[in-house]
């Protein structure tokens, strides 16, 4: 059960909706998959700045609406010294570019392109994601060398995978403690 301490409101009077029931404890049901995912998670993003990794994870989790991953990675980011402002502004980063470095902006732009592959039904219309546009890839390649860029792509891919498990299996947020899975 979620307590108000978990949600962090600091109030004692509000009545929140009941916590949803999880769908599927996939890590127990598919232990070999889970073990491989843990190995993948450790391998992906090696060598990247930890703060940048958390920003990428939070932004992908916003786009994929993964509450569990948002709970985890916003708490991990804060615990690692990230500012509240940079986390709050992340969903509108295009309007708050001065909160981030050029390298972070290039990584966020690539994160969105790699996360929203299904957008843009035809390249002819050039709208709404899809296909990871050349200019997005090239901007990222200006800031990351070939090895780093492959690790960034891997990190984006892996948080997308966790998002899919989290949302589909409805793993409920609110209970994560920073560093719990480190």
């Amino acid at each position: 059960m979620t307590t108000e301490t978990d949600i962090g409101t600091g109030t004692t009077t509000a009545e929140y909706a009941p916590e949803p029931t999880p769908h599927l404890d996939w890590a127990k049901l598919a232990p070999d998959v889970f073990k491989a995912m843990i190995r993948l998670d450790a391998a992906a993003g090696q060598g990247l700045d930890p703060r940048l990794r958390e920003l990428v994870k939070i932004r992908a989790s916003q786009l994929n609406h993964c509450a569990l991953c948002l709970d985890m990675h916003s708490k991990d980011a804060l615990a690692a010294g990230e500012s509240v402002e940079r986390i709050v502004q992340l969903s509108a980063w295009e309007e708050s570019r001065h909160f981030y470095t050029g390298k972070e902006l290039a990584a966020l732009e690539l994160t969105e392109a790699v996360t929203v592959l299904t957008g843009g039904t035809s390249q002819a219309f050039g709208s709404g994601g899809g296909f990871v546009p050349d200019e997005v890839y090239e901007r990222a390649a200006e800031h990351f060398d070939e090895t780093e860029l492959a690790q960034l792509i891997a990190a984006i891919t892996v948080i997308n995978a966790w998002n899919r498990f989290g949302v589909t299996c409805r793993r409920t947020p609110g209970h994560y403690r920073p560093g719990q899975h480190k």
Partner: peptide, 17 residues
């Protein structure tokens, strides 16, 4: 280029699935 450890873990995820 893809990190060999990433490639190997990806294959393990797909195979187990």
């Amino acid at each position: 280029y893809l990190d060999p450890a990433v490639r190997s873990a990806m294959r393990a995820v797909s195979a187990a699935a």
